[in-house]
Design a protein around this nucleic acid. Structure first.
Length: 406
DNA sequence: TCTGGGGTCCTAGGACCC
DNA sequence: TCTGGGGTCCTAGGACCC
């Protein structure tokens, strides 16, 4: 029996951070709509995080692109206006969008803060997929005040490629019969999951368009690039059988990292930063009701060399002290005296849910005490805000690490 | 005034076991 | 003298995404 053809939409907010900040400013009574001028949402140069996070159409036309430094962007666009991002507000706008989309299907995968996949297969009624796409596009603009692109297709990959065609405020289809005309003609760099490391290798093989890639022998792509080769080959041919993952998923890992306002070169200073990062990570871990099995410490040197070490915990934990102790151990292993460090990161991985863990013949008295302490601290944080409570050893590092949103 | 921060998944080598 | 091979777990690093 042939399987029913799937009906998939991809909804992508146009210039999300910039549009949302534009709306917030208009709501606060500002006269200028920053979508209409040469503007970007950017990081903070004084904190050495001065990159472009989102740009207006006018800035884009001057050649400004996401991820480049504000310095480079200003060279191309001297009148560029730079605004700060507000993640709390972005989450709210994202949720507003989600609520509208829920009226069309419950099978929604929130792919990122500004992108969703919708599985409409069983939710079309007598309507067509493309009508639904236009309706969503119109309603979001009218009810929320920002615009979206909607991609219409029969799998996620094609829907995502379609929503990336001309912007803003558009609906595009990418049906099987349209693949040669609409997708194979594009530069191969436009293909989803094809990054800047792979691109030069393909150019060396005289592969310039997605169509060139699609014409390769499948087996050759596997031989040259392994699993990733197969993926690229399938994507270039419009093949993607992955499901819309609409069920809320627990995270697989939780991390926090920070670029320091100045490079540091003493283990003691790095430890203080690690403690601040650990507190935040462990707090989030406990809010998910999960335990970690692995701790990972990442360092970036002043000349942008990244390295990391990781280790399994003796037993799964969500306790700040256990994680911090192992993090210090890892730092000890990996840190060469005198190296200038630009970024410090801490993540926990191989997470399990608390109830999966047999509680526990082995939990010792010290751990139980720690757990109680963490709980008290968490409750205060929940009640009075994350930064309401802090421990003495950390105070110094707060001059270095500004507290971030949790 | 160069170059964020949060993730997921994959690969490859070594240890260890049968 | 010769010197397996399959499987799993652990770790470091890298590619890619938004």
């Amino acid at each position: 029996m042939e399987k029913k053809q799937r009906q998939i939409l991809h909804v992508d907010v146009n210039n999300a951070f910039l549009s949302w900040t534009a709306l917030d400013r208009l709501n606060q009574g500002e006269k200028i709509d920053i979508r209409e001028i040469e503007a970007v949402i950017g990081g903070d140069e004084s904190k050495r995080s001065g990159i472009v996070l989102a740009k207006s159409m006018k800035a884009k036309r001057k050649g400004v692109y996401t991820g480049e430094t504000l310095y480079q962007a200003r060279l191309k666009c001297p009148n560029l206006q730079v605004f700060k991002g507000d993640y709390k507000s972005y989450r709210k706008h994202s949720n507003d969008l989600y609520k509208i989309l829920l009226q069309y299907t419950e099978k929604i995968e929130r792919f990122s803060i500004d992108e969703c996949f919708l599985d409409m297969t069983d939710y079309l009624g007598n309507d067509t997929l493309i009508n639904k796409a236009y309706e969503i596009n119109r309603r979001v603009k009218k009810e929320l005040g920002f615009t979206v692109n909607v991609g219409v297709a029969h799998n996620k990959l094609l829907a995502k490629m379609a929503s990336d065609f001309t912007k803003p405020d558009r609906v595009h289809t990418l049906l099987e019969e349209e693949i040669p005309s609409k997708m194979w003609t594009l530069p191969v760099s436009e293909l989803f999951m094809l990054g800047k490391k792979t691109l030069p290798k393909l150019y060396n093989m005289r592969i310039k368009t997605i169509g060139d890639l699609a014409k390769q022998e499948r087996i050759d792509m596997i031989k040259k690039f392994g699993k990733h080769g197969l993926l690229m080959w399938e994507y270039s041919n419009g093949i993607d059988n992955s499901e819309v993952n609409y069920l809320e998923e627990k995270p697989k890992g939780i991390g926090n990292s920070v670029t320091l306002p100045r490079d540091i070169c003493s283990k003691e200073e790095i430890e203080k930063v690690l403690l601040t990062l650990t507190e935040q990570v462990a707090y989030r871990l406990r809010r998910y009701n999960m335990y970690a099995n692995v701790v990972n410490v990442q360092l970036r040197t002043k000349d942008f060399k990244d390295f990391s070490h990781q280790k399994k915990l003796i037993s799964p934990t969500s306790n700040t002290k256990n994680i911090y102790d192992l993090a210090k151990e890892l730092l000890n292993e990996m840190y060469k005296k005198g190296t200038f460090i630009r970024l410090v990161g801490l993540r926990v991985d191989n997470l399990i849910e608390k109830d999966e863990m047999q509680l526990s013949l082995f939990t010792n008295e010290e751990d139980k005490k720690q757990e109680k302490l963490d709980k008290v601290v968490d409750e205060l944080k929940n009640k009075y805000g994350y930064s309401s409570i802090t421990r003495a050893g950390k105070l110094n590092s707060e001059e270095i690490v500004r507290l971030k949103d949790v």
